[in-house]
């Protein structure tokens, strides 16, 4: 290899490292005890073993341990003072200390991951996939329809409509959250319903309109005329010709919109109840006011990144195709 090639490879390697470093740091932090979370760790730090002097309430507060589940697991009926230490609990309720330890130890050892799992991560993940999937799918379809109507700006009102859509982009979501909330709950009766978040995601999307309008404008009008000559109606054109051509712009749209919808924090927080939170709201709700289980938060972040990474890997071919589509003319 020549020297400049070596330098190039070196620089690329460095770039990869810089790009991947945050992911690595996130994984490490997801397993770093909260007490050590203010220091920077290159590798998982050691953790103190569970002490029988720990109080149940403190464990609940610091490690987000579900005291209710603990009581059920230990077969304790009725109210338990959370200020009791584990040793006191064992004595009062005549429990084997080992049994207590066996149940609690892993929850402390892998606190972050287990807390978010027990707090309902999978349910939240399903909800997120549902909301994001429907939003991307329906939003994309609506964008294609809008785009096929507006492409080329053949009438003056087309441009006007397009600009209206674009205006959407400059309105901060926080500014319209109140009227939106009122419309969703009072007019549409969608309080605590995933549809409300989906509606917000797909309403007058500036991005989808922009992507599909500009892409559809590059499709020769002869294709539509040809369908017309062949005796097809507009919907034939839409389903047989236009839709199959939308893979590329859809990949562009999805790859930009999907992370945004996936990571939307504000709307699920406002429109949904905690039991239905999507992932970002779910992770945000892990935090406290004076104490924060950082380990759980970082675990939540890490776990909520994995599915979207998987989605990218699965659909990679589509995204790559969208990137090279400009180079090879069909």
């Amino acid at each position: 290899m020549k020297r400049h090639q070596l330098v190039l490879v070196g620089l690329l390697g460095l770039y990869c490292l810089i790009t991947l470093a945050p992911f690595y740091a996130l994984v490490v932090r997801a397993f770093t005890p909260t007490v050590q979370s203010t220091e920077f760790h290159l590798w998982l730090p050691d953790r103190r073993p569970l002490s029988m002097n720990a109080r149940l309430g403190d464990l609940a507060t610091i490690y987000s341990i579900d005291a209710r589940a603990f009581r059920q697991e230990m077969g304790i009926k009725g109210y338990v003072n959370p200020q009791l230490t584990l040793a006191q609990l064992a004595e009062t309720y005549e429990l084997e200390p080992e049994r207590i330890r066996a149940w609690l130890e892993p929850r402390v050892q892998y606190n972050g991951v287990l807390s978010v799992m027990e707090a309902g991560f999978l349910r939240s993940l399903l909800a997120t996939i549902f909301v994001t999937g429907v939003s991307v799918g329906v939003g994309g379809l609506l964008g294609i329809m809008t785009g096929s109507a507006l492409a080329g700006f053949r009438r003056p009102w087309h441009l006007f409509t397009y600009n209206l859509y674009m205006l959407n982009m400059i309105i901060p979501p926080m500014m319209v959250i109140l009227p939106q909330y009122l419309i969703m709950t009072k007019v549409l009766g969608l309080d605590d319903n995933y549809l409300s978040v989906i509606l917000i995601h797909i309403k007058g999307g500036a991005l989808s309109t922009m992507v599909f309008t500009s892409y559809i404008a590059t499709i020769p009008k002869e294709l539509r005329e040809s369908v017309q000559m062949d005796g097809g109606r507009h919907y034939h054109y839409f389903f047989y010709v236009l839709l199959p051509l939308m893979g590329t712009p859809f990949a562009v749209f999805a790859s930009i919109a999907m992370p945004w919808m996936w990571n939307d924090l504000l709307h699920p927080l406002v429109f949904l109840s905690p039991a239905k939170y999507t992932l970002p709201a779910f992770v945000a709700a892990i935090g406290g006011t004076y104490t924060t289980n950082y380990e759980a938060i970082f675990s939540g972040l890490m776990l909520s990144l994995i599915p979207i990474l998987l989605i990218y890997l699965v659909f990679q071919k589509m995204f790559v195709r969208s990137a090279v589509a400009g180079a090879v003319k069909g």
Binding site: L266, L269, P274, A284
Partner: peptide
């Protein structure tokens, strides 16, 4: 009893609900 938590991250969203009368 549906018990839930409000923290710094979720306070603004909660305030939006309050302002909307809910």
């Amino acid at each position: 009893i549906e018990l839930f938590a409000i923290n710094e991250d979720t306070e603004a969203a909660y305030q939006a609900r309050v302002a909307a009368g809910d």
